[in-house]
Design a protein around this nucleic acid. Structure first.
Lengths: 225, 225
DNA sequence: CGGGACCTTGAAACACCTCAAATATGGTGG
DNA sequence: CCACCATATTTGAGGTGTTTCAAGGTCCCG
C-alpha cells in the first residue's frame, strides 16, 4: 500500500543518534514491566509520558461510549507510543504479553528534542509512519474482504520479523482482538483462518502459531489490488 | 470519537503567528488555481511542496495497482496538504470545485519552521489532527453501518461550516466519491440517503444540497456508540 | 429537444453477522 | 500428572446488510 516496502529497518527514537545523545536520552528513561492484560494507560487519561516498547507486545484500542471497540494497532519492539496531540491520550494501551517499556516524561522529552535535531527528526519520521499505518488500515477496512484483511494483518506481523523466521508468526492476541482490529466478528475471523488454511496459504500449528506457506498469495491478498 | 469536540477553530499554519511571521511565510507562497477535476499532484510523484487550501474543496485519494480506490479525505479551507513522510506523495489530490491553493516549496517551508517555533508547533498540531481524522475514519469503516457512515460524513462536513448555516450542506463530491470514502458502493450510499430521508433526519433539496433536519439523530448515528 | 453522465430503484446473490452448540485450550487443584 | 473447570475458538444454520447486475429516472449542457 505504502510506497516504501520494508527494506530499511523502521525508525525508532534512537535511530542515528550519537553515543552521547543516546546517553542523554537514556538518562530520562524509566523502565516499566507489564504483564499480559496490564494497562499502560487508559483513554482520556492525561498525557504525561511517551513510551517506547523494548520487548513484548502492546495493543492500542479505542472504545466508544456504548462499547464498540476498535483496535488501532499492535505494537512491537521499537515502536513509540503516546506522541500526544491532545492533553489527554485518546486511546487505551494494554499488554498482550509480558513487556518491557521505556517511559520518558513528556516535558523532558520535548525539551531534549530541542537540543537534539536528529531526535526531533526521528519523532517526525515516526509520526509519519504512524499515519501511513493508519491510512493502510483505512484502505484495508474500506476495500478488503475478510480473508484479505486477515492476510493484511499476517503480512504486517510477518514484516516485523527477521527475514529468516518471517514465515512463523506467533499471535499474541486473541481472535476477538483480531476481529476488532479488522472490523470483523470472531466467527468471521475464524472462518477466514479456515479459508486460508484450506487454500494452503497457511498452516496452523496451534491457535497462536501460524506458518505462512505461500507468502506470495498472502501478500497478494494483503495488497488486494 | 476524538476527545475535543469542535469548540475551537481548527489550527492552520497561520494560527497564532505574528504579523511579521505571517509576512515571512507569505513571501514563500505561490498561488495556484484549480478547476474541478484538475489534479494538484499524483500518487508517487516526488514531494516538493506543501499546500494550504484557501477556497474550494480538494479530495485526497489512494489507489491500488488494480484500481480499487479509497478516498482518504475531503479538504476545506485552511487544511494543509502534503506534509511528507516520504520522498514521494503516497496519495493523489484533485479539485472537486474551483479552488485556490497556496503552494509553499518544501525546502523553504522546512527552513522557516526552524526560525518560527510557532509554525513548527502548528505543523505538529495539524499532523496530530490528520492522524486523529484517520483514526476516526478507521473507527467508522470498522464499526459502522452504511447509514451511520453517511451520517459520519455529513457530520464532518457540517462541523466545518459556520454554526449559523451548518444545517445546509453543499456536497461537492459525487456519490462515487462518497462511496469510496466510506468503503461502500454508490447504490448503498444512495439507499443510505434514502433511509435518512425516510427517517426525517435530512431533507434532500437537490442531489448536491442536503439539509440536516435532526442534527441530534445525525450526530448519534455518526458517533454510533 | 436530445444525449450522456450521474443517480436511484429493484431483484437476486453473496458476504458477513447473529445465535447456538460443539470442541479445543489453558490453568488449577486434587 | 490427571481431571476438571472456565474460557476461547470453531463450526453450523439462519438472518441481515451490502453488493452485484440490470433497468429506469433525473439532471445538465449542448
Amino acid at each position: 500500500m505504502t510506497l516504501d516496502k520494508q527494506t530499511k529497518p523502521p525508525t525508532t527514537i534512537y535511530t542515528a543518534l550519537t553515543a552521547k545523545e543516546i546517553e542523554q536520552l537514556d538518562r530520562l528513561v524509566v523502565f516499566r514491566e507489564l504483564e499480559p492484560g496490564d494497562f499502560l494507560f487508559h483513554q482520556y487519561s492525561p498525557a504525561a509520558s511517551v513510551y517506547m516498547l523494548d520487548t513484548g507486545m502492546l495493543m492500542i484500542e479505542r472504545s466508544s461510549s456504548t462499547g464498540r471497540r476498535q483496535v488501532l494497532a499492535f505494537m512491537q519492539r521499537g515502536n513509540l507510543i503516546g506522541i500526544p496531540h491532545n492533553k489527554h491520550y485518546d486511546f487505551t494501551v494494554s499488554a498482550l504479553r509480558a513487556s518491557r517499556i521505556r517511559e520518558i516524561p513528556l516535558r523532558q522529552f520535548t525539551q531534549l528534542q530541542e537540543e537534539i535535531t536528529q531526535l526531533k527528526d526521528n519523532v517526525r519520521e515516526i509520526g509519519g509512519n504512524i499515519l501511513a499505518h493508519a491510512l493502510d488500515q483505512v484502505f484495508a477496512l474500506g476495500q478488503k474482504r475478510a480473508h484479505e484483511r486477515l492476510s493484511f494483518l499476517l503480512k504486517q506481523l510477518s514484516d516485523r520479523l527477521p527475514p529468516q523466521q518471517c514465515h512463523i508468526i506467533e499471535l499474541s492476541m486473541s481472535r476477538q482482538d483480531i476481529a476488532d482490529y479488522l472490523g470483523l466478528t470472531i466467527e468471521t475471523v475464524s472462518r477466514a483462518f479456515g479459508k486460508l488454511k484450506t487454500e494452503g496459504s497457511i498452516f496452523v500449528h496451534s491457535i497462536h502459531t501460524i506458518e505462512i506457506l505461500d507468502m506470495d498469495a498472502i501478500e497478494e491478498m494483503a495488497l488486494a489490488d
